[in-house]
Design a protein around this nucleic acid. Sequence first.
DNA 1: TTGTATGCGTTATCAG
DNA 2: CTGATAACGCATACAA
Lengths: 358, 358
Amino acid sequence: MVASSQRRREVTVADVAREAGVAKATASRALGNYGAVSDDARDRILAAAEALGYRPNELARSMNTGKSKTVGVVVGDIENGYFALALRGISDAAKRAGYDIILVNTSEDVDAEVDAVRLLLDKRVDGMIVAPASAYRVDHLRDVFDSGRPLVFLDRQVEGLPAFSVGVDIAPAARAATAALIHDGHRRIAFVSALGTDGDRYSGLPLGVSSVADRLVGILEGLEEIGIPATPDLIRYGADGLEKTRAVIADLMALSDPPTAILMSDSLVALNVLLALRELGIQVPKDVSVVAFDDFDWAALTNPPLTVVAQPIYEVGVAAADVLIRLMRGQTPEETTVRLPASLVRRDSIGRVAVAGR
Amino acid sequence: MVASSQRRREVTVADVAREAGVAKATASRALGNYGAVSDDARDRILAAAEALGYRPNELARSMNTGKSKTVGVVVGDIENGYFALALRGISDAAKRAGYDIILVNTSEDVDAEVDAVRLLLDKRVDGMIVAPASAYRVDHLRDVFDSGRPLVFLDRQVEGLPAFSVGVDIAPAARAATAALIHDGHRRIAFVSALGTDGDRYSGLPLGVSSVADRLVGILEGLEEIGIPATPDLIRYGADGLEKTRAVIADLMALSDPPTAILMSDSLVALNVLLALRELGIQVPKDVSVVAFDDFDWAALTNPPLTVVAQPIYEVGVAAADVLIRLMRGQTPEETTVRLPASLVRRDSIGRVAVAGR
DNA sequence: TTGTATGCGTTATCAG
DNA sequence: CTGATAACGCATACAA
């Protein structure tokens, strides 16, 4: 009746086998339920295991099956609602299929990403889901392929790698958002992102993050449709944190011909832009209209409620995991790229602008 | 010059040793940099490893060191900003110490938690951080102790287990929030939580989640201070999701003597309560005052900006990981319980109430 | 300093 | 159906 503080030495199959009076191999078969074992033996073995409090050592198991039933997930920022929600989708789908998740947060730092990928490979994950921080440094991602383990890109694509990728078809929605703004008379439309680049401006669109580049593509298409040329002075990067965002917004609104509308790249950017606008006493949508990417939970709670580009983020996570799982099972999905649709959700943050005939 | 698609068989120490013309043990020592190896041999071995593209198999390594350099983290809901931020803290601190994280989301379901803990144990994590969904079902947590692995509770405590716990000292702050409301004339103060209980009301406070119970303790103390007895009709559970929250709020505000203030248990509850109030046309703070637990990022963005109880969530995550790391290193922190301070952040969601002399 | 032999806990192979 | 025995890839006590 002593509290069984059976520390130290763990109970192994060998112990169970001895207790049940069978060979290790037989016990192993019964416990791992594979191969063939007589009902009689199985009962004794299971009883012994129960009595001894046997628990399999998954490390040892993984070692000679080659499968760890674990997938690596590498994202830039868990704090970002986008990734948190996608992670939830991945987690749910993975659990359903019996996989655990090793999560690594890279803070969008490529060096950290490189290390993370290497380590996950060393830990012998069965597959990986990565939101690559850069489309330029990709050797570590190539290593994943060379290791024979499946890799799925989340939210972002990388050219030149034979990879599967799951994300949102954001360009058309970005274009629709732009069109909506144009329809209400807007001509000076800004785009603000947290991404860093060499300069602070739009420099030819060679962005390292495809999902952000796609937003821009859509916006530019929308503008082009009515013959408005790209306006580099209205495309701003580096709005990372409130301070920098404040500077970006102040600078933008101090332009001789300031934007009448701002497209905000994600929920974090939206938060900071809204805060900055308030500080400057600039009212939405009276003084400036705004549209955010992502229909984050508080988007409808602001005053006015925000018009947004809604993305099926949870579903993206689930889809990414499902593709990976299929791959890990040796099946090959027909589609190499999955793009879920985004849609414009109209609320009240777009105001009308008198179309001043120039 | 063929793209080295060295699939199948992995490169092992044996291969490196052969290539370098030394014994396995020597190569192993050089690669794991322990023991003593001549500079000459080390150079040859490292060169061979580089040439062959050797990568250590951490599984095998873990097997006979007994350490996996991995910690398990079990939380109820990653979507909840609280856990997302705490996770970030844990992640940063763990990475700093060379640990990876296996993350499991239980959806606050105890059965899922039990499974998760067992599986993590089977995967031989070196330690665990758990935000237990219930203080009543704890056998699986006891198993962690019996396995000899350190366990740290996050945000919540469990009686009767010799565990370390890291969280926020929320009761005093809850009391301060209540006092602030009382100071402004409020007497009918409601508390709304997403937690489920047997009934929908306050039933003697035996909550399974200590951090929520602590909020209530603080509130009740604050009320008691001026002689207001506990008001079970104003304490509501089950505000889980917009729909249920809507019902809770509608019911609350339809009371013959409705609350003049509402304390919202966390950011998710706050979101839904605010949405519900808006739907009902109830204005903050004119018709009802609100205070939220957690200073989530958009708390200052609502109209009016929310008065909140701010918690050092990221720091809680870091502290939890640090305690665990110390434990895993065999050190014993002097404090068995770490409680970081919370504070009231006054913004504009508390209105004055005329103290009607009864 | 280096090499040999053994162990970690499973699964897998192949006789019996 | 069952039981020896050999992997799996690395670390480590011990001997040389």
